[in-house]
Design a protein around this nucleic acid. Structure first.
Length: 476
RNA sequence: GGCGGCAUGGCCAAGUGGUAAGGCAGAGCUCUGCAAAAGCUCGAUCCCCAGUUCGAAUCUGGGUGCCGCCUCCA
């Protein structure tokens, strides 16, 4: 079954077809001038999962994600703080990468910076001028939107309509109000580079055209980013790249929905951001990923302070199940030889779950559906484990464990295997206590048995009496 | 004003023509000395109106409400 994806450009789902050996992915990265927030985490986690799923399906990928390290916001912030703009940007770029590492996001293959591509930018601007798509005025260079008949095709807008909504003052040097800057004339106290048009710096959108072209070539596969980038950023990228090459920029445009706080977009300018750093202090990364993956990537996602607590219960159950499996399987491998009826049924259920999971992901990466399928399978596994007589583990459990490890662990990154090992004497002593308590229970000395349980609970050790005997676990 | 999206049980969330996945919360039950864990059972006709159709949450038209973009933004 082929993978299909919703393409913003055509506004419908299309089958994924790549003529390349490895799928080229360009995701618009961040403008690094303040802390990484949840809104940045969503596309990162989503693309992390998409990539891992593509790998699972046998594709190779090459993923480029830029840092826009030259920008008005960075310059202004640097001026406030009295530091070098590029240094500030570098610092926040590092912070971004650290946050994403901490979220378990695999790194892109390349993180190009605007500041290191000035000559490439200048040459693309020259090319645009040659081809009649751009003009220089007073040290600035503007892109001429009227020179590109398809302008507006991504955001499905006509130039006249866009113009009607314009609510900012138009630079009198522009031929058309929607023309945008490719090169900005230097102002005092700003980083500036020499160019054929004098000292200046690149405009906002040009860097993505230049760097995607340089590292992925013409017409690569995926171009991604937040839905708020559709206009003007991606629209302008298309105008620049396609104006310069005469060829389509990317085949599939994928846009993730915004994360809202109290029904309002989380954004730096609104000052309502939730920092990834802060979240990670309170919650495991796996839970944050679980939350992000619990709805489809294109829909909006509501966040509030209790949100992660609300979803954590279901997440914990999933983890509990996988942990029990891990304990039973205990790193061993099993062969299918002795397999009773229930075991055979579970093995079959695992196969079905995997097929359904893949079908869900094939359909525009429907992680919410896929999660539902994992929960379905979890119920079957739990039922099987409840009927278990020994702690020996078997082939069916082994298959179930492998499946969770592959899908929930490897692709989604939402399970956390708890290390129950305690240091030194603690573990034997704990086992001794459990043994003692079992003896007390068999003598019906329940008060004492319960006393042990409640005192251990105070030490964050939870005891569960299962048909297979008592087990303990650390409460987080 | 233009463009796009969304509206599904108390909450979250799949489902785009054939009679409503899954999660949380709630109720009951099983297991159990109790507890915990787990399992089982119970709950919605899908914002409103009008159409198309044998049949619509799903298509069409018209409303209502919310969000996003049209200014930097993931």
């Amino acid at each position: 079954m082929p993978i299909s994806v919703y393409n913003t450009l055509t506004r419908r789902k299309e089958e994924l077809r790549s003529s390349r050996e490895s799928i080229g992915i360009y995701v618009c990265g961040v403008t690094p001038y303040s802390d990484t927030h949840l809104g940045h985490a969503r596309p990162s986690v989503v693309w992390d999962v998409i990539k891992k799923y593509l790998h699972y399906r046998g594709y190779k990928t090459y993923h480029v994600q830029n840092f826009t390290d030259i920008d008005d916001k960075i310059i202004n912030r640097a001026l406030e703080l009295g530091v070098e703009p590029l240094k500030l940007a570098e610092q926040y770029s590092e912070e971004y990468l650290e946050s994403m590492d901490a979220l378990g996001v695999a790194r892109a293959d390349l993180y190009p910076r605007v500041s290191r591509h000035i000559p490439d930018i200048i040459s693309m601007i020259e090319r645009l001028i040659e081809r009649g798509h751009a003009y220089a005025v007073n040290g600035n260079v503007f892109y001429s939107v009227l020179s590109f008949p398809e302008y507006g095709k991504l955001s499905n807008q006509k130039i006249e309509q866009l113009q009607a909504g314009t609510r900012f003052e138009v630079d009198p040097d522009k031929k058309h109000p929607l023309d945008f800057a490719l090169w900005k004339k230097a102002k005092p106290n700003e980083p500036a580079w020499d160019s054929p048009w004098g000292k200046g710096r690149p405009g906002w959108h040009i860097e993505c055209s230049v760097m995607s072209h340089k590292y992925l070539g013409e017409e690569f596969d995926f171009h991604g980013g937040g839905a708020d980038l559709i206009f003007p950023h991606h629209e302008n990228e298309i105008a620049q790249s396609e104006g310069a090459t005469g060829r389509p920029l990317a085949k599939y445009w994928l846009h993730n929905g915004m994360i809202n706080l109290k029904q309002e977009k989380m954004s730096k300018s609104l000052g309502n951001i939730v920092k990834v750093k802060d979240l990670l202090e309170k919650y495991p990364k796996e839970l944050i990923r679980f939350f992000i993956l619990s709805s489809h990537y294109r829909s909006e996602l509501e966040y509030h302070d209790q949100k992660l607590e609300e979803v954590s219960r279901g997440w914990q159950r999933l983890n509990e199940c996988v942990n029990k499996l891990a304990g039973l399987v205990d790193g061993k491998e099993f062969t299918p030889e002795p397999l009773d009826e229930a075991g055979a049924a579970l093995v079959k259920a695992a196969e079905e779950a995997e097929a359904r999971f893949a079908a869900a992901m094939d359909d525009d990466f429907n992680t919410a559906l896929a999660l539902g399928i994992l929960f379905d399978f979890m119920r079957q596994v739990n039922a099987y484990m409840a009927g278990l007589r020994s702690e020996a583990g078997d082939y069916a459990l082994y298959q179930a464990y492998q499946l969770f490890a592959k899908l929930a662990g490897g692709i989604f990154g939402i399970v956390r295997l708890e290390e129950q090992r305690l240091s030194g004497l603690s573990e034997p002593l704990l086992d001794l206590l459990l043994e003692l308590r079992t003896e007390l229970r068999s003598q019906k000395l329940y008060q004492l048995a319960d006393y042990i349980r409640s005192r251990l609970a105070e030490l964050n050790v939870a005891i569960e009496d299962t048909p297979q005997g008592p087990r303990w676990k650390m409460r987080s």
